[in-house]
Amino acid sequence: MLKSVYTTGEVAQICKVSQQTVIRCFDSGRLKGFRVPGSRFRRIPRDSLVTFMKENEIPLDHLASGRKRVLVVDDDQAIVDMFSELLERDGRFEVRTASTGYDAGMATQQFHPDVMLLDFKLPDVNGNIVCRTIRNQPEFEHMKIIIISGVADPDEIAELKSAGADDFIRKPFEIEHVINRMSEMLNLN
């Protein structure tokens, strides 16, 4: 399941740097790789990426599993358990969970999720506050946020989108739909 060759975009995401930086490093020879025959696309083999990360003291945990990190935030334990089981079984995801807005913030700092499945109505704050707080920090700019809620007031959805949510899914949902949306957002195949 682990990838052996990465694009510059993927390297940028793994190393938490901009794609431009990756390209500069590639072109200067500090990041070893090759160009796809017949085109100018840059590709980086896994071992040269690991070397590059070690040389530049970039933590390897993002590369370690090769799986996408998902943070599930919901105060309903049954929902959290269901997502954990579903996503772990899928194999492409590494799952952490939180049950309040505060926990979600803490977990985001430690876990650096790629995507967050966020319940709108939390015991302490509403989803839009969580969204806004996360979006205010540049390091989480690329993180995807999918709001999952039982109440779908059009005004609330608009408000959530403006607060930085990437998508809105209404409960109850088709599990395939949720997985597909996540895959699309994270460029998984």
Partner: peptide
Amino acid sequence: AAHELNNPLAVITGRAQM
């Protein structure tokens, strides 16, 4: 009611689909 009912309904549908 929508908020209270849709959570358990989401678990029912989700688990049934799994």
